[in-house]
């Protein structure tokens, strides 16, 4: 199961990034997952991950969403819950 994963929400802090963070938080809280959520607004981190459009989501250092707000269902699937 999904334990000790690290989810990064990347973006400069625009409303779309905040919404993305909210979606991720909602899934993690709802499923009571042992997951660390980090909000990173540094361009350096985005570049290191190869991300050019925000908002972005990375799970364990791998970009899984870029340039759009993900759905809760999608995050669940990406975390291997369904």
């Amino acid at each position: 199961m999904a334990t000790h994963k690290k989810i990064e929400v990347l973006g400069p802090g625009c409303s779309r990034c905040k919404e993305t963070y909210r979606v991720v938080q909602h899934v993690v809280d709802g499923e009571r997952l042992d997951v660390e959520i980090v909000k990173d607004d540094s361009v350096e981190r985005m570049m290191a991950l190869g991300l050019m459009s925000t908002p972005g989501v990375a799970i364990d250092g791998k970009v899984v969403v870029s340039g759009r707000i993900p759905k809760a269902q999608e995050i669940r699937e990406l975390l291997g819950l369904e």
Binding site: C17, L51, T54
Partner: peptide
């Protein structure tokens, strides 16, 4: 290409580098 001005900085750096 989808673009929002809040992505201008990462996009700029991603392109020039």
């Amino acid at each position: 290409t989808p673009f929002c001005s809040c992505s201008a900085v990462p996009l700029f750096i991603g392109f020039v580098t």
